[in-house]
């Protein structure tokens, strides 16, 4: 049974790749591009697009640097991103029937 009142889902997070990125970053202070790519199983270009979208709304912070001679991109969640993910999970719960207690 689905409750009558359903909370709206944040359209920015409501995409499997962006949800994966946000879920990883919520427990990691920093994650690098390759780790996110491996976790989401997507391509460089696709992941970059999703990361740019999350950065644009202020949910994540992207830092580009160098490890030795290799370029390294790392991402971290902002406070706004953390709050947005918490809201998203709460909204998801409104789609589930309340457990009988």
């Amino acid at each position: 049974m689905i409750p009558e009142k359903l909370a709206p889902l944040d359209p920015v997070i409501h995409s499997q790749i962006r949800l994966a990125v946000m879920s990883i970053l919520v427990s990691a202070s920093v994650a690098d591009f390759n780790e996110l790519k491996a976790a989401t199983g997507t391509t460089d270009g696709n992941l970059s697009t999703h990361l740019a979208k999350l950065e644009e709304v202020g949910y994540i912070r992207i830092k580009k640097s160098f490890r030795g001679r290799k370029p390294a991109t790392t991402c971290s969640l902002t406070d706004a991103g953390r709050e947005a993910l918490a809201r998203y999970v709460n909204a998801l719960e409104s789609y589930l029937p309340k457990s009988r207690g």
Partner: peptide, 12 residues
């Protein structure tokens, strides 16, 4: 979606 979030947290 909730299962997916858990999987990502476990992975981390």
């Amino acid at each position: 979606d909730i299962k997916y979030i858990r999987e990502m947290l476990d992975r981390t």
